[in-house]
């Protein structure tokens, strides 16, 4: 690569104008060369200034009040709608009571279902932590393991908040013929810019093999990817950060070789979902 090609690659990466294969090349270069990382950081600072090149237009005055009102409403987010039964009962007729009770029962059932689902996901998280503690007790290098554990605890806390986010979107991953009993749940929080993927009953992988989880946008561009090796438990949780402003629309879980840096399936897909809305 000539110096000009290198500069073009890094400047274009900073500007966000590379297509997927070139992004891979740039990120490989950035990972291997601190000078390249520094150069990208400089160009990114310049790219961020480009917002100031937009012609100045002010939003309508009423938008300010709308934003502030929405902020005040969202400062104490309601987790779920609860029917004010105590207020309704005295004033309502028997028929209304019956109708309200019916609605309340439906909502209560939905709430119970939600809580059961949430509890199951949180249980998976706690069980994963318990296994990590077991590993720490047996570790030959406890200090290193402790550092890893601290990182994992932070991830767990983030995952817990995402799973508990009432505005997070959640979907069951669809098993393929290669799943062999594996199932999975995907939860994504826009406000946290992160997804939690809980995988269950994963088949053990071979030597130097991993499971890779890839999130894609609606055009099939890779937004984020991460890999994992089953830790022996029936459930495995993975927290995946997504770029600000991105919106994952598809999730693919596939088996691949550890040495592979492919973000898209080059091995059997075991779980997938497309067109999450």
């Amino acid at each position: 690569m000539t110096p000009e090609e290198r500069e073009a690659l890094l400047a274009s990466y900073a500007l966000g104008t590379l297509s997927a294969p070139d992004v891979d090349d740039a990120e490989r270069l950035i990972r291997s060369d601190p000078a390249a990382a520094d150069e990208v950081a400089r160009y990114q600072e310049i790219a961020e200034l480009m917002a100031l090149a937009a012609p100045v237009r002010r939003p309508p005055p009423e938008l300010r009040a709308r934003v502030m009102e929405a902020a005040k409403r969202s400062s104490k987010p309601r987790r779920r709608w609860r029917v004010p039964v105590a207020r309704i009962l005295p004033a309502a007729s028997l028929a209304v009571i019956a109708a309200v009770a019916g609605i309340w029962a439906v909502n209560l059932q939905q709430e119970l279902d939600d809580l059961r689902e949430e509890a199951a996901l949180l249980t998976a998280v706690v069980e994963a932590d318990a296994r990590r503690l077991d590993q720490l007790a047996l570790a030959p290098n406890p200090e290193r393991e402790l550092t890893l554990l601290e990182t994992q605890v932070q991830e767990t806390q983030s995952a817990t908040s995402i799973i508990g986010d009432p505005e997070a979107e959640s979907a069951e991953l669809v098993p393929t013929e290669a799943a062999h009993g594996a199932t999975g749940t995907y939860t994504w929080s826009d406000s946290a810019d992160a997804a939690v993927v809980v995988l269950r009953n994963l088949q053990p992988v071979g030597f130097l093999e991993v499971y890779r989880i890839t999130l894609l946008d609606r055009w099939g561009n890779v937004i984020a990817t991460d890999s994992l090796v089953p830790d022996g438990g029936s459930e495995t949780m993975k927290l995946i950060q997504t770029p600000a402003g991105s919106w994952p629309q598809s999730v693919v879980v596939f088996a691949t070789n550890q040495a592979s840096d492919s973000e898209l399936p080059d091995g059997p897909v075991i779980l997938e979902i497309y067109g999450i809305e």
């Binding site: 100045v56 237009r57 002010r58 939003p59 300010r64 934003v67 005040k72």
Partner: peptide, 22 residues
């Protein structure tokens, strides 16, 4: 503190809106 949001809005709403509109 909603007041802090109001100040940030007053400072940057035009920038955000301009970029979005552009």
């Amino acid at each position: 503190e909603v007041g802090a949001l109001e100040q940030l809005y007053d400072r940057y709403s035009a920038l955000v809106f301009s970029v979005a509109l552009r």
